[in-house]
Design a binder for these strands. Structure first.
Lengths: 104, 104
DNA sequence: TGATTATATAATTGAATCATTATATATTAA
DNA sequence: TTAATATATAATGATTCAATTATATAATCA
C-alpha cells in the first residue's frame, strides 16, 4: 500500500474526538480501561472498540495486570505522530483526579 | 468548541487519501482544479467537493485567474499541520509532468 | 466452586461520508 | 450573443463508521 494511503489511514484514527482524547490521556502515562471509561463520557464497550482500532493501527499496546488491562502509547518510529500529540492540550490534572478510582 | 474536537475535525480532513494527496500536491505550490483532476484518478466534481471541505476547514484558499481557479495551502498558524505535510512524500516530479496541460 | 469485576466481542441501528451522475454558474472565445 | 471550457453545486446511492445493546471471556474473591 502506498505511503499516502498509510498516512491517511493513521489520520483517520486521529479524526475522532474519543480516540484523540484517549491518546491525549495516554500521553501522561499508561492507563487501564476503567480509568479511560471514567473520564470519557461514553460506555465501556465504546472505549474498548476504539482501543481496538488504535491497537490495530499500531498506536497503542496493552499489558494485562491481573484483572486490569493497561494501555500505553506506541509511537516510537512515528515522528509526526509525536509532534501531533505534543500539540494536544494536557489532561494531566483531569487524569490525576480520576486515576485509580477503579483499579489497584 | 473545545480544542480536541477542533483538532480531530482537522485530522478528519487528512484522513482521506484524495484530500491528503491534494495537500501533498499543493505543498509544491498553487494549482488549478484541472491540474488536480489531471493527476488524481477521480472525477472533477469529486475533486471540487474535496476542495470545498478543505476550504471550509481553513486548510486551503482559492484565487480566480480568468476561467481558472487556483488553490493553495493556508497553513500558517497551524504548526502541526506544517509538520505533517513535511512528512508527506514529494510529488514534485509528478506535478511537473502534468502542470499546465490544461490551463494557461 | 460460584459470584463479582474488568474487559472484549458481536449484532444492530442510525448517521456520516464518499463517489457518481446530473445540472448550474461563470468566464472566455468565436 | 452563442458555444465552449472550467468549476461548483445538488441529488442520489452505496459504503463506512460510531454508538448502543447484548453477550462472552477472563481474572479475582468469597
Amino acid at each position: 500500500m502506498d505511503q499516502i494511503q498509510e498516512m491517511s489511514d493513521q489520520f483517520k484514527m486521529l479524526g475522532d474526538k474519543t480516540r484523540l482524547t484517549i491518546l491525549a490521556m495516554l500521553k501522561e502515562g499508561a492507563l487501564c480501561v476503567c480509568d479511560l471509561v471514567g473520564f470519557l463520557e461514553t460506555s465501556q464497550p465504546n472505549v474498548s472498540q476504539h482501543l481496538r482500532k488504535l491497537k490495530d493501527a499500531g498506536l497503542v499496546h496493552e499489558t494485562r495486570k491481573g484483572q486490569w488491562i493497561y494501555y500505553s502509547l506506541q509511537i516510537e518510529d512515528k515522528p509526526y505522530i509525536g509532534t501531533i500529540l505534543d500539540h494536544l492540550p494536557s489532561l494531566r490534572e483531569n487524569i490525576d483526579s480520576i486515576k485509580n478510582n477503579c483499579c489497584e
